[in-house]
Each structure stands twice: as C-alpha cells, then as structure tokens.
Simulated assay, not measured.
Amino acid sequence: MNSTTPGSESREKGIATMEEIIGSAGPATNGTGPGNVIKDISEKDFMAEVIEASMQRPIIVDFWAPWCGPCKQLTPALEKLVTQAGGKVMLAKVNVDENQGIAQQLRVQSIPTVYAFYQGRPLDGFQGALPESQLRQFIQQVLEAAGGGDDENSIEALLEQADELMRQGQPEAAASLYAQVLEQDAENAKALSGVIRAYIGAGEMEAARAVFDELSEALKLQSDIQGALAALELAEQADGAAANLADLQAKIAQDANDHQARFDLAMALNATGQREEAADALLEVIRRQRAWNDEAARKQLVQFFEAWGPTDPVTVQARKKLSSLLFS
C-alpha cells in the first residue's frame, strides 16, 4: 500500500492509519511473513524446522514437486488455511526432487503427501489433493490433537471479537483486532471490510474510502467488501443530513406525499443509527408511489440491506415488508 493515510484525527480517535493497519501486512510465506508460518524446508534443516519445531506447535509437511499437477492445487489451499490458523500451526514444504533422502526415510511413495508432526513424531497424514473443506477438517483435527484447537488468537476468534466490538459501538478497539488479522492474512476480506466499517464508525469517511480504493479489483468484488462499500456510500450520501431531521419531518407533516423529503429523511435517520425508522420511511414511499423517481426508494432500501447485512434483524423484517408491498 502507498502512504495515503488519514490525518492526525484518526490517531487522536485511536484508530491506526491505513499504512499502520494494512500497509505492512503481507502473506506469511517462505519464512518471511508474521510468525514464519510457511517455509521451504530442505534435508539440512528438516530436523530443526520440523522435528524440533514440532515440540512447540504442530508442523504440517507438504511433500511436492514442480511437475506434480495435484500439488499445484493442494499447496495453495494448505498455505491459505495455515495462514488463517493464525500461528497455531506451521507449514513446511519439501520439494522431493531436491530432497529425496527425506522422502525415502518417510516412505513417501506418491505426491502430494502430507504429514502432520507434533512432539517430534508423525501425528496424521494423507496422500493426494483434498478439497478445502477436508483440509480444514484435517488441520482442525491436528490442532485438537495437539491441544490448540480453541486458541483465542486464531483469525476466526479475532474476527468474532472485532465484530462484537463493532456491534457495541467501539470501532477503535475493533480496528486494532482487524489489524491483527491482517498481519496474518493481508487479503482477508472480512478484516478489510471491518477496517472500512471501523473508519465509518469513527466518522473517518476519507480514510474508509482510501482503504477501499487501494484494494485489488479481485478483493473489491468480494461480498464482504461490497457490503462495506454500500455502508460507506450510504455514510457519504448522508453526510450532514442528520442536521436536517427536524426540517424534513416538518415538510412531511405539511405534505405527506413529499416523497423527496421522506426519502431524504430515510437517509438522515440511517445516518443517526435509526435503521428501522429509515427502512419504514422508504417503505412508505414505496407504498404511496412505488415508481417514484425510477423506483429510487426501493433501490435505496436494497442498498440499506447490503450495508446492514443479510442477517441484520432490521434487514430481515424490512425485506418481509418489502415483499408484501411488491407482491400484494
């Protein structure tokens, strides 16, 4: 990431700048990432990096070769899942063409072959490429056998803690946890979307926009990022609208069919955290004149749903009301 960062206001609010949050984060590969969770291993360092290292945490050894087709599917999947494990397990990659002695000692007869070591001994293993769901299960079983399956520092646990802090209205604290995730997995879409939402929660719209703008095109298409973008666009649209709540309510009191005023009121209500009232305002516009302004109320309500998330209680209830209006 480049040095485009929010200014001193972000530091005063306690949220790290974009450079601090994601600028230095990178994939943990080849022994250079956080915690060195993925390494290329040779015969000369197998004892130290696998046998001795497994006394501290499980080591998954991936026996592969450049010419092996299934290996090209398995290895990236293993790297992804090991990275997501947040340091609880390490992946050691052994090129059998260059390290035939190790392969012979462990009786590796076909590749890919994977062994899990713990406390200096093989714990489990398999041959052939497995789907990601089975690989995830394999790693979980290894961690449970090693007594580390419930480690609170895992990516999943960190994300859950950060999301809960966001629900409690603590974006600064949540941002620091999302940053910890990004230190382990720099392209974690949930964490990146969390950073964007944390900036929105702190009122730092420019910082949130900067984080989104610097993401790769592939990441921008992820559903979590799209949801954060919808929330950002709503926040940008509603900037300053909350101050007009009284005026908008007065306009509607004078003319109940002032759809623009009711639409603007919905935006202002959402900006002040009154989601249910915001949804009801748009639903009322749809009830009175569905086609108004090229169905602007319906389209805006859908954007609300995207920003709030599909499982948000207000989203669920408003969707039911919308369906009732559209299909009655």
Rank of each mutant, 00 (worst) to 15 (best):
V316R: 07
F46A: 04
S10A: 12
A231R: 03
D40K: 04
F304H: 10
E20G: 10
T4C: 09
Q140V: 09
I15N: 12
E276Y: 00
A228P: 00
I286W: 13
D62K: 05
A202V: 03
E49G: 00
E214M: 06
Q289H: 14
Q274H: 14
V82W: 00
N153K: 14
L106G: 08
Q303E: 12
Q104C: 05
Q161T: 12
S154T: 15
A85T: 08
S193G: 09
I200M: 15
Q226P: 05
A103T: 05
V195L: 14
Q104N: 11
D124Q: 14
E156Q: 15
I200T: 08
I225P: 00
S10V: 03
L165G: 04
S42R: 04
S3Q: 12
E132F: 11
I15S: 11
A116Q: 09
Q180F: 01
E217S: 11
Q119E: 14
D151C: 07
E79A: 10
E160V: 13
G240K: 01
I286N: 12
A92E: 04
Q134M: 11
G148L: 05
A271D: 08
P131S: 13
R287C: 05
L192F: 08
E277H: 10
A296P: 08
V61I: 02
A179S: 15
C71H: 06
K299S: 11
